[in-house]
């Protein structure tokens, strides 16, 4: 019983990490239809932002304050990644809307540039970020002992998803974003500044990638190529969930996380992975547009 519960938690935990990685992409790819290959590098930027904040705390603040760095790293990574995203949109992507192949190549190139930038500044070897003390150790829930960092990630992801749903579905600027993404010309005819909406939306998506980067520092060391390890997973989650559907991204991340853990438990790590991919192929055969798909009635 305990073993099963633990596996369930592991599945949920893996799902939450996948979700956090995919969340930004659900905006830039899902909503805006930009095949953003630099998404992984935006995650990497967020991770290095956490690293820098940590260094600053180590250097300038008394040791007792150290653990607090993480609280500052989260908004710092969001802002820094959002800034890079904004810059990327302004300089490259803006000219490539509606040209998926070109934007794929261009963002791939931008990703390589960002990787090299990180290598130049921080060096090629991986660096480690020390977890804050309050996230080390385990927490006992009933009979399970759960790593505190995993639980924290779960809660953080829930908060991010909650914020995103609130922002997109309850605020006026969220409404504008949805309107522009659905029908750009009409939104413009209603007086919405579509340029501003595009650049803010992309920056927000990039910002969430940055938060994911900070969280990844809790899991392992970080390096300039950190993003490449996650980009496939991120696209997989968004595509399986259904492009353009936030709720689909949530369902697909948790589903993939769960099945991955179950398959790995029943077989072994590499076989589990194979089974997950087979499952994904089957799902896409059954629902080519992803788990959730918008059906609308237009002009009938």
């Amino acid at each position: 019983m305990e073993a099963i519960l633990l596996q369930l938690f592991n599945g949920l935990s893996l799902g939450s990490i996948l979700l956090l990685i995919a969340l930004g992409l659900a905006i830039t790819f899902g909503l805006m239809n930009v095949i953003n290959m630099a998404h992984g590098e935006l995650i990497m930027i967020g991770a290095y932002a956490a690293y820098v904040v940590q260094l600053l705390f180590l250097t300038y603040l008394p040791e007792g304050m150290f653990s607090w760095y993480f609280i500052f790293a989260l908004p710092a990574s969001f802002l820094l990644a959002a800034f890079f995203g904004w810059l990327l949109e302004l300089s490259v992507i803006r000219h490539l809307y509606g040209r998926p192949l070109d934007s794929l190549l261009a963002t791939f190139g931008a990703g390589l540039i960002l990787q090299q930038l990180a290598r130049t500044i921080f060096g090629a070897p991986n660096v480690g970020v020390q977890s804050p003390t309050f996230l080390a150790g385990t927490i006992e829930i009933f009979t399970l002992s759960i790593p505190a960092s995993r639980l924290f990630i779960l809660l953080l992801v829930a908060a991010c998803v909650g914020f995103m749903f609130y922002y997109f579905y309850k605020t006026k600027s969220g409404m504008r974003i949805r309107a522009v993404m659905q029908n750009r010309k009409m939104a413009s005819s209603l007086g919405i500044n579509t340029r501003r909406v595009d650049s803010t939306t992309f920056a927000i998506g990039a910002g969430f990638a940055g938060v994911a980067g900070t969280v990844l520092t809790l899991i392992g060391p970080i390096g300039p190529t950190l993003g490449t390890a996650y980009i496939v997973d991120a696209f997989m989650v968004v595509v399986v969930g259904g492009v353009g559907m936030l709720i689909g991204t949530v369902a697909s991340a948790l589903g993939i996380g769960m099945f991955n853990t179950i398959f790995e438990y029943v077989t072994n790590a590499s076989m589990g992975r194979v089974l997950v991919f087979i499952l994904i192929i089957l799902v896409l055969q059954w629902r080519p547009n992803g788990l959730f798909h918008l059906r609308t009635r237009s002009l009938d």
Partner: peptide, 25 residues
């Protein structure tokens, strides 16, 4: 203000949200 041929309402937004977007200008 513009009522296009083919209506071009925002089909994934609620009726109320569609009207609210009209208030934009």
């Amino acid at each position: 203000s513009y009522v296009p041929q083919g209506r071009e309402i925002f089909s994934n937004l609620s009726v109320e949200e569609n009207l609210t977007l009209g208030l934009e200008t």
